[in-house]
Amino acid sequence: MSSQGPTLPNEPVDFSIDLGEHEVLRRAHVLDAIGPDWDPVAVLQGEEAAYDLLYSGLSEEQQRVYDDLVAAGVLPRRGHGHASP
């Protein structure tokens, strides 16, 4: 093994990568993995239902914290001004 390390080229080397082509390939792999039965509308509806359940039945203190987070712009307002009962 040489103590001088690797030999570097004296001229610039082009390290270009076509990210557009790579992104198309990545998306194709993602869609292939998801499968043909994927329903994005149903997924979004399921996420909304999960958030409704997450913010349901809050105690007074939890509701106060929720309202503070909404007022600060950390969480979106859900339902009619309060988390679902």
Rank of each mutant, 00 (worst) to 15 (best):
13 V>C: 01
38 W>T: 08
11 E>Y: 10
28 A>T: 03
74 V>P: 01
32 D>R: 07
38 W>Y: 15
50 A>V: 05
73 G>R: 04
72 A>L: 10
45 Q>F: 03
28 A>Q: 12
45 Q>A: 13
24 V>E: 11
74 V>Y: 10
63 Q>Y: 04
51 Y>E: 15
22 H>I: 07
61 E>V: 14
53 L>E: 14
67 D>G: 02
74 V>F: 06
78 R>E: 02
35 G>T: 07
10 N>Y: 04
82 H>L: 13
19 L>Y: 02
54 L>W: 09
17 I>W: 01
42 A>M: 05
12 P>S: 08
58 L>M: 15
24 V>A: 15
73 G>Y: 07
57 G>Y: 10
29 H>A: 14
41 V>N: 04
31 L>Y: 14
50 A>Y: 08
30 V>P: 00
16 S>T: 15
79 G>H: 14
45 Q>Y: 03
71 A>S: 11
62 Q>I: 09
35 G>R: 11
70 V>W: 04
27 R>H: 00
70 V>C: 03
37 D>H: 11
31 L>M: 12
10 N>E: 08
45 Q>K: 13
81 G>Q: 11
45 Q>G: 05
43 V>A: 07
11 E>H: 09
62 Q>R: 14
67 D>H: 08
51 Y>F: 13
42 A>V: 06
41 V>W: 02
80 H>I: 10
45 Q>T: 13
46 G>A: 06
44 L>D: 00
71 A>L: 13
69 L>M: 14
39 D>C: 11
22 H>F: 02
31 L>S: 05
68 D>Y: 05
77 R>P: 12
21 E>V: 06
35 G>A: 12
63 Q>N: 10
37 D>Y: 08
42 A>W: 03
40 P>T: 04
68 D>S: 06
78 R>H: 12
25 L>S: 01
20 G>T: 00
9 P>R: 06
16 S>E: 02
15 F>S: 04
36 P>S: 14
73 G>W: 09
82 H>T: 15
58 L>F: 08
22 H>A: 10
33 A>M: 10
15 F>K: 06
32 D>G: 14
8 L>Q: 12
81 G>A: 11
13 V>P: 00
67 D>L: 11
22 H>L: 09
76 P>A: 08
56 S>W: 08
37 D>Q: 11
13 V>K: 06
29 H>N: 14
55 Y>Q: 07
